[in-house]
Protein backbone atom coordinates (compact mmCIF):
# COMPACT_ATOMS: atom_id res chain seq x y z
CA UNK A 1 0.00 0.00 0.00
CA UNK A 2 3.02 2.36 0.08
CA UNK A 3 2.93 5.25 2.53
CA UNK A 4 -0.45 6.14 3.98
CA UNK A 5 -3.87 5.37 2.52
CA UNK A 6 -4.29 6.14 -1.19
CA UNK A 7 -6.40 9.11 -2.26
CA UNK A 8 -9.79 8.41 -3.79
CA UNK A 9 -8.48 9.05 -7.33
CA UNK A 10 -5.53 6.72 -6.80
CA UNK A 11 -7.92 4.08 -5.51
CA UNK A 12 -10.18 4.43 -8.55
CA UNK A 13 -7.19 4.23 -10.90
CA UNK A 14 -5.91 1.12 -9.21
CA UNK A 15 -9.27 -0.67 -9.16
CA UNK A 16 -10.94 0.52 -12.37
CA UNK A 17 -9.91 -2.36 -14.59
CA UNK A 18 -8.04 -5.07 -12.74
CA UNK A 19 -9.39 -7.84 -14.95
CA UNK A 20 -11.00 -9.41 -11.86
CA UNK A 21 -14.77 -9.74 -11.47
CA UNK A 22 -14.80 -7.06 -8.77
CA UNK A 23 -13.08 -4.31 -10.76
CA UNK A 24 -15.12 -1.11 -10.77
CA UNK A 25 -15.67 -1.49 -14.52
CA UNK A 26 -17.14 -4.99 -14.21
CA UNK A 27 -19.28 -4.00 -11.22
CA UNK A 28 -20.61 -1.06 -13.26
CA UNK A 29 -21.54 -3.36 -16.16
CA UNK A 30 -23.24 -5.83 -13.79
CA UNK A 31 -25.06 -2.95 -12.15
CA UNK A 32 -26.33 -1.69 -15.51
CA UNK A 33 -27.55 -5.15 -16.52
CA UNK A 34 -29.34 -5.80 -13.24
CA UNK A 35 -31.09 -2.42 -13.28
CA UNK A 36 -31.85 -1.99 -16.99
CA UNK A 37 -33.33 -5.48 -17.52
CA UNK A 38 -35.98 -4.99 -14.79
CA UNK A 39 -36.83 -1.48 -16.03
CA UNK A 40 -37.46 -2.74 -19.58
CA UNK A 41 -39.16 -5.96 -18.47
CA UNK A 42 -41.44 -4.06 -16.10
CA UNK A 43 -42.58 -1.78 -18.92
CA UNK A 44 -43.08 -4.68 -21.35
CA UNK A 45 -45.21 -6.54 -18.78
CA UNK A 46 -47.04 -3.50 -17.39
CA UNK A 47 -48.31 -2.32 -20.79
CA UNK A 48 -50.50 -5.37 -21.58
CA UNK A 49 -51.57 -5.72 -17.92
CA UNK A 50 -52.47 -2.03 -17.76
CA UNK A 51 -54.34 -2.25 -21.06
CA UNK A 52 -56.24 -5.29 -19.82
CA UNK A 53 -57.20 -3.47 -16.60
CA UNK A 54 -58.59 -0.57 -18.60
CA UNK A 55 -60.51 -2.82 -20.98
CA UNK A 56 -61.88 -5.10 -18.26
CA UNK A 57 -62.60 -2.83 -15.27
CA UNK A 58 -63.00 -5.69 -12.79
CA UNK A 59 -59.32 -6.61 -13.28
CA UNK A 60 -58.13 -3.24 -11.99
CA UNK A 61 -58.83 -3.63 -8.24
CA UNK A 62 -57.27 -7.11 -7.84
CA UNK A 63 -54.25 -6.20 -9.98
CA UNK A 64 -53.41 -2.99 -8.13
CA UNK A 65 -54.19 -4.65 -4.79
CA UNK A 66 -51.71 -7.42 -5.55
CA UNK A 67 -49.14 -4.92 -6.78
CA UNK A 68 -49.50 -2.85 -3.57
CA UNK A 69 -48.71 -5.98 -1.57
CA UNK A 70 -45.73 -6.78 -3.83
CA UNK A 71 -44.44 -3.22 -3.44
CA UNK A 72 -44.51 -3.54 0.36
CA UNK A 73 -42.25 -6.62 0.40
CA UNK A 74 -38.73 -5.74 1.57
CA UNK A 75 -36.14 -6.61 -1.08
CA UNK A 76 -33.58 -8.49 1.03
CA UNK A 77 -35.87 -11.27 2.32
CA UNK A 78 -37.37 -11.61 -1.18
CA UNK A 79 -33.87 -12.08 -2.65
CA UNK A 80 -33.12 -14.64 0.07
CA UNK A 81 -36.32 -16.60 -0.57
CA UNK A 82 -35.65 -16.62 -4.31
CA UNK A 83 -32.15 -18.04 -3.85
CA UNK A 84 -33.60 -21.51 -3.30
CA UNK A 85 -35.25 -21.25 -6.75
CA UNK A 86 -32.91 -19.21 -8.93
CA UNK A 87 -29.61 -19.56 -7.01
CA UNK A 88 -26.99 -16.87 -6.40
CA UNK A 89 -27.47 -15.39 -9.85
CA UNK A 90 -28.38 -12.00 -11.32
CA UNK A 91 -31.87 -13.42 -11.98
CA UNK A 92 -32.48 -13.46 -8.21
CA UNK A 93 -32.12 -9.66 -8.17
CA UNK A 94 -33.78 -9.05 -11.55
CA UNK A 95 -37.09 -10.82 -10.77
CA UNK A 96 -38.07 -8.82 -7.63
CA UNK A 97 -36.96 -5.53 -9.18
CA UNK A 98 -39.16 -6.28 -12.19
CA UNK A 99 -42.14 -6.77 -9.88
CA UNK A 100 -41.42 -3.54 -7.95
CA UNK A 101 -41.28 -1.77 -11.31
CA UNK A 102 -44.60 -3.28 -12.39
CA UNK A 103 -46.15 -2.14 -9.11
CA UNK A 104 -45.40 1.45 -10.12
CA UNK A 105 -45.99 1.13 -13.87
CA UNK A 106 -49.34 -0.70 -14.03
CA UNK A 107 -51.19 2.15 -12.23
CA UNK A 108 -49.24 4.62 -14.40
CA UNK A 109 -50.35 2.88 -17.62
CA UNK A 110 -53.95 2.79 -16.37
CA UNK A 111 -53.91 6.46 -15.32
CA UNK A 112 -52.28 7.38 -18.62
CA UNK A 113 -54.92 5.63 -20.68
CA UNK A 114 -57.69 7.06 -18.52
CA UNK A 115 -56.28 10.54 -19.16
CA UNK A 116 -57.26 10.24 -22.83
CA UNK A 117 -60.19 12.68 -23.20
CA UNK A 118 -63.38 10.99 -24.31
CA UNK A 119 -63.93 13.36 -27.24
CA UNK A 120 -60.50 12.44 -28.59
CA UNK A 121 -61.33 8.74 -28.43
CA UNK A 122 -64.68 9.32 -30.10
CA UNK A 123 -63.09 11.43 -32.84
CA UNK A 124 -60.71 8.56 -33.58
CA UNK A 125 -63.64 6.15 -33.80
CA UNK A 126 -65.53 8.55 -36.04
CA UNK A 127 -62.50 8.87 -38.32
CA UNK A 128 -62.64 5.13 -38.84
CA UNK A 129 -59.60 4.11 -36.76
CA UNK A 130 -59.57 0.38 -35.98
CA UNK A 131 -59.25 -0.34 -32.24
CA UNK A 132 -55.58 -1.37 -32.65
CA UNK A 133 -54.69 1.71 -34.67
CA UNK A 134 -56.58 3.91 -32.23
CA UNK A 135 -54.56 2.40 -29.38
CA UNK A 136 -51.20 2.78 -31.10
CA UNK A 137 -51.68 6.16 -32.73
CA UNK A 138 -54.03 7.98 -30.37
CA UNK A 139 -54.34 6.50 -26.89
CA UNK A 140 -50.77 5.37 -26.15
CA UNK A 141 -49.15 8.63 -27.33
CA UNK A 142 -51.48 10.59 -25.05
CA UNK A 143 -50.59 8.24 -22.17
CA UNK A 144 -46.83 8.72 -22.70
CA UNK A 145 -46.25 11.56 -20.16
CA UNK A 146 -47.91 9.68 -17.30
CA UNK A 147 -46.18 6.38 -18.17
CA UNK A 148 -42.80 8.07 -18.49
CA UNK A 149 -43.26 9.81 -15.13
CA UNK A 150 -43.68 6.30 -13.68
CA UNK A 151 -40.64 5.09 -15.63
CA UNK A 152 -38.51 7.82 -14.04
CA UNK A 153 -39.45 6.64 -10.55
CA UNK A 154 -38.83 3.01 -11.54
CA UNK A 155 -35.47 3.71 -13.20
CA UNK A 156 -34.04 5.73 -10.31
CA UNK A 157 -35.22 3.35 -7.58
CA UNK A 158 -34.15 0.21 -9.49
CA UNK A 159 -30.66 1.60 -9.98
CA UNK A 160 -30.28 2.31 -6.27
CA UNK A 161 -32.01 -0.89 -5.14
CA UNK A 162 -29.68 -3.21 -7.09
CA UNK A 163 -26.99 -2.48 -4.51
CA UNK A 164 -28.90 -4.41 -1.81
CA UNK A 165 -28.13 -7.49 -3.92
CA UNK A 166 -24.53 -7.15 -2.71
CA UNK A 167 -25.67 -8.94 0.45
CA UNK A 168 -26.18 -12.07 -1.67
CA UNK A 169 -23.06 -11.35 -3.72
CA UNK A 170 -24.98 -9.90 -6.70
CA UNK A 171 -25.18 -6.18 -6.16
CA UNK A 172 -23.16 -4.62 -8.95
CA UNK A 173 -21.64 -1.45 -7.49
CA UNK A 174 -23.18 -2.43 -4.15
CA UNK A 175 -20.24 -4.84 -3.96
CA UNK A 176 -18.11 -1.79 -3.18
CA UNK A 177 -20.15 -1.22 0.00
CA UNK A 178 -19.72 -4.76 1.35
CA UNK A 179 -16.01 -4.67 0.46
CA UNK A 180 -15.61 -1.35 2.28
CA UNK A 181 -17.41 -2.66 5.35
CA UNK A 182 -15.41 -5.88 5.63
CA UNK A 183 -12.14 -4.02 5.25
CA UNK A 184 -13.01 -0.63 6.78
CA UNK A 185 -12.10 1.82 4.06
CA UNK A 186 -14.02 4.89 2.89
CA UNK A 187 -13.09 5.45 -0.82
CA UNK A 188 -15.09 2.46 -2.19
CA UNK A 189 -18.22 3.68 -0.35
CA UNK A 190 -17.92 7.19 -1.78
CA UNK A 191 -17.19 5.88 -5.29
CA UNK A 192 -20.16 3.49 -5.08
CA UNK A 193 -22.63 6.12 -3.85
CA UNK A 194 -21.45 8.72 -6.39
CA UNK A 195 -21.56 6.28 -9.34
CA UNK A 196 -25.03 5.01 -8.40
CA UNK A 197 -26.42 8.54 -8.01
CA UNK A 198 -24.78 9.53 -11.33
CA UNK A 199 -26.29 6.50 -13.09
CA UNK A 200 -29.69 7.43 -11.67
CA UNK A 201 -29.31 11.04 -12.85
CA UNK A 202 -28.30 9.91 -16.36
CA UNK A 203 -31.24 7.47 -16.60
CA UNK A 204 -33.61 10.18 -15.37
CA UNK A 205 -32.20 12.66 -17.88
CA UNK A 206 -32.57 10.18 -20.75
CA UNK A 207 -36.21 9.59 -19.84
CA UNK A 208 -36.90 13.33 -19.72
CA UNK A 209 -35.31 13.56 -23.17
CA UNK A 210 -37.43 10.65 -24.40
CA UNK A 211 -40.53 12.43 -23.18
CA UNK A 212 -39.58 15.59 -25.11
CA UNK A 213 -39.04 13.56 -28.28
CA UNK A 214 -42.19 11.46 -27.91
CA UNK A 215 -44.54 14.30 -27.04
CA UNK A 216 -43.52 17.24 -29.29
CA UNK A 217 -47.03 18.73 -28.96
CA UNK A 218 -46.51 19.55 -25.26
CA UNK A 219 -43.68 21.95 -26.10
CA UNK A 220 -45.57 23.39 -29.08
CA UNK A 221 -48.51 24.15 -26.80
CA UNK A 222 -46.24 25.78 -24.20
CA UNK A 223 -44.64 27.89 -26.93
CA UNK A 224 -48.07 29.11 -27.99
CA UNK A 225 -49.04 30.02 -24.46
CA UNK A 226 -46.03 32.26 -23.83
Amino acid sequence: MGDGPPSIWEWIGRNWDTGRADSIRNLLTDHLTMSLVPIVLALVLALPLGLASVRWRWLYQPTTGLMNVVYALPSLPVFMLLISVTGLSQTTVIIPLTFYGMAVLIPAVVDGLNSVPDHVRQSAVAMGFTPLRRLLQVELPIAVPVVLAGMRVVAVSSISLVSVGALIGQGGLGGLFTRAYQNPFMPPVIVGIVLIVLLALVADGLLVLAQRLLTPWVRARKGQAS
Binding site: S157, S160, S163, V164, L167, G171, L173, I193, A200, D204
Partner: peptide
Protein backbone atom coordinates in the same frame (compact mmCIF):
# COMPACT_ATOMS: atom_id res chain seq x y z
CA UNK B 1 -37.51 13.30 -2.93
CA UNK B 2 -35.25 12.61 -5.90
CA UNK B 3 -32.13 12.24 -3.80
CA UNK B 4 -33.75 9.80 -1.36
CA UNK B 5 -34.81 7.60 -4.26
CA UNK B 6 -31.37 7.64 -5.87
CA UNK B 7 -29.23 7.16 -2.74
CA UNK B 8 -28.35 3.48 -2.17
CA UNK B 9 -29.44 2.52 1.36
CA UNK B 10 -26.64 0.01 1.91
CA UNK B 11 -24.02 2.58 0.87
CA UNK B 12 -25.44 5.20 3.20
CA UNK B 13 -25.53 2.72 6.11
CA UNK B 14 -21.91 1.63 5.56
CA UNK B 15 -20.80 5.25 5.20
CA UNK B 16 -22.38 6.33 8.50
CA UNK B 17 -21.02 3.29 10.36
CA UNK B 18 -17.49 3.85 9.00
CA UNK B 19 -17.71 7.54 9.97
Amino acid sequence: ANLARALPTLGLLVMFVLL
